[in-house]
Amino acid sequence: MEAFFQTYGFLLVYMCLQALLGLSTYLPLMAGQLSLASSGFYAIGGYVAAILSTQVFHTSGAYPIGYLLLETLLAGLLSGVVAVVVGIPALRLRGIYLALATIAMVEILRVVSLNLSITGGAVGIFGIAQPFSSPLGYMWLVGPLLLLVMFFAYRLEGSRIGRAFIALREDELAADAMGINPTYHKVLAFALGAMLAGVVGAISAHFLNTWNARQGTFDVSIAVLAYVLIGGSRSFAGPVLGGMVLTALPEVLRPLKDLRFIVDGLLLMLAAIYLPQGLANPNWLARRKTAPVREKT
């Protein structure tokens, strides 16, 4: 058991972090907003933590947890503010147009971070202080966070705001006619996802010890979207399951060596074709007395 955690501690924490990123894309999708911006906010959060811990807070020895929590708070807030500023004009767009606008945002952020001196340019920021002595230590932070966010998403699905999100996803015009304010709820869903992605970025910067422009790229956006769509986009369990399975997959496929990314791509393709509802089908999870979720036509 000890040896297992020694070997796979890093992977386990990473799986949880990716599951959280999956949830950050799931939240806007709940309100029908296909956003590929998670990796952008993830990058912003990471830079906040990386810059603060290497240039503002000077510490020696183990990095204080309090500072780390403060960084995650600031990262979440900054991501949320950026999300509201970008979101209010961008969320007038629907479907593929919104996805394209968020791709544009991610790419602009990437090019800017590649060229600014405060973000370390192409090299990035490295030697980010470690609050824990081993990768598994992060589990004390990431594990409860994942459970908390899952509980939040679960409760959200049943709450007034969550039901407003779902109504918007199913039919924006009808929801509007029912008195749901589309702009307010769409921006809220977008900002919630952004804040979560920012927090995950801040923790990941410490966890990975280094942060650079490669962390927030189009590839990452797509990987995170795949977590949600393959895991299942109709319940919070989907992105968590998808994030964990798809993160572990390259490790599981390691015996295939160089072929593993090819198999990875093939699985992505096959899952899209043969598992359209995702791994976590809400019809299995539906509580009694609640009607099963209708398949969208």
Partner: peptide, 9 residues
Amino acid sequence: VSSLGAGLV
């Protein structure tokens, strides 16, 4: 997603 997977392959 499936075209992204194909591109990755």
